[in-house]
Amino acid sequence: MVEKLRGYSEDITKKDHAIFSKIVSDKLDKWQINQVLTPSEIYPRQQYVIATHWHPEFVPMELNQQRIETMFPNRKDELIIPTQHNELMSYGPYTGAEVDCYASGFDEKVQLLIHFETERLQDNDTMLRSMLAHTRKYRSSQLFDFIHSFTKPIDERLHAAAKKTGVEPSAVKFACIVVGKIEQLLNEHWDSVPEFSMRNKLIRNYIDALRPEFGHRFIDRVQTFVQEVKKIVKLSFPLEYFYRASEIIEETRHLGGSIIIPHPEQFWPILLGRYDVDGYEVWNPQSNRYTEFLIDVVNEHNKYRKSSSKQLLILMGDDCHQGEKTRRKDEQDPEKTGREIGLQPAWDDLNIQKKLIRGGVTRQGIIEEYRNRLSG
């Protein structure tokens, strides 16, 4: 390994170009398509499918649809709305997005799920699309701050991450060389790099592509270090350039859309914000410690809401990132790969069901009620 690291050149090679071209491409190879179309499990007993928080990424909708049809062959009803990060995307009659925004009241970045009946948008969504484009552009600037942490370099970030993770100097040096190559390749191919690739994942995916050459053990250590640097970058990222949550909500309502707050346990004060939303996501795969508590909170809110006000809805999200399904098995994040569109086991958890019954909440009922709200 020592000799391999010594021989790893800072110069861009044909292999580097090939790796870069592959990870920024939106074209899927046959084996990737097969992975998308072949779920690990089938759920023949699930009759109602709701998915209001999932990310198609670069996987074509027709492939996502085939996967859903395979997973839930006996479904009677469904409500499926994609929520790409800061970009409106449509599936069947519905359009949605997950929007990064700023909660000025408690000075934190939050996310909102915005959903629409596609026909109601028509040509009136120019302002919203411009707001989302601004947000994507701002988010992509974080990638370059991340890159500059290694290429400038910003020593205090690197030292802090190395101390926290305990990685050896060779891993730090290797990460700096690799990210330097990524920066050069981005500059060289700037005009042809798809917008969806301009995210922090670009660095993770490039480093993972080096596993065959440097082995899992070493690359795992490098990734641990790089991810810690990313956390430091995120903590220092200014929030005031995001649109305020209230502005996103106002524009969504203007267009006849609905709003759900996802994983509220990641930004607790939002429960007290009295935002004009339709409901809360009380469970998703990465945010499920307080599901029963959140159900109680929503039920309590509904108990004291005015009779003229709509009830807050209880939803669950799978937070599935379909791009993960296209990665080679040894490069996948097992936790993320296990997430599936429309799969929310908490609906069938007996303890959670007790809470849902008290609020008169069923998966079928939520599908019907939310569909009615979306139709106006």
Results as ranks from 00 to 15, higher is better:
residue 22 K to Y: 02
residue 66 Q to S: 11
residue 278 D to E: 15
residue 28 L to K: 00
residue 242 F to L: 09
residue 205 N to W: 07
residue 305 R to P: 03
residue 38 T to G: 09
residue 339 R to V: 00
residue 288 N to E: 10
residue 147 I to D: 00
residue 81 I to C: 06
residue 64 N to G: 12
residue 69 E to P: 04
residue 206 Y to Q: 04
residue 167 V to Q: 13
residue 81 I to H: 03
residue 62 E to W: 00
residue 274 R to D: 14
residue 362 T to G: 02
residue 193 V to Y: 01
residue 367 I to S: 00
residue 27 K to C: 02
residue 227 Q to E: 15
residue 281 E to V: 01
residue 27 K to E: 08
residue 82 P to R: 05
residue 312 L to Q: 01
residue 294 L to E: 05
residue 91 Y to R: 09
residue 281 E to R: 04
residue 325 K to S: 08
residue 135 T to H: 04
residue 78 E to K: 15
residue 123 D to P: 04
residue 304 Y to A: 08
residue 123 D to S: 11
residue 51 A to Y: 02
residue 181 K to Y: 03
residue 139 R to F: 07
residue 188 E to F: 03
residue 72 F to Q: 03
residue 353 Q to E: 08
residue 11 D to Q: 12
residue 98 E to Q: 15
residue 81 I to P: 01
residue 67 R to D: 02
residue 318 D to A: 06
residue 353 Q to N: 05
residue 23 I to H: 00
residue 116 F to C: 07
residue 335 E to V: 13
residue 1 M to E: 11
residue 106 F to N: 04
residue 317 G to M: 09
residue 3 E to Q: 12
residue 39 P to K: 12
residue 360 G to Q: 03
residue 199 R to Y: 06
residue 131 M to W: 08
residue 166 G to A: 04
residue 272 L to C: 06
residue 271 L to K: 06
residue 67 R to L: 01
residue 178 V to P: 14
residue 320 C to H: 14
residue 165 T to V: 07
residue 347 W to M: 02
residue 314 I to Q: 01
residue 316 M to H: 08
residue 289 R to Q: 14
residue 121 L to K: 08
residue 59 V to A: 01
residue 44 P to Y: 12
residue 297 V to S: 04
residue 75 R to W: 11
residue 49 V to N: 02
residue 42 I to F: 15
residue 140 S to N: 13
residue 66 Q to R: 15
residue 326 T to H: 06
residue 109 K to Y: 05
residue 337 T to P: 03
residue 47 Q to K: 15
residue 181 K to W: 03
residue 331 E to N: 13
residue 206 Y to M: 01
residue 229 V to Y: 14
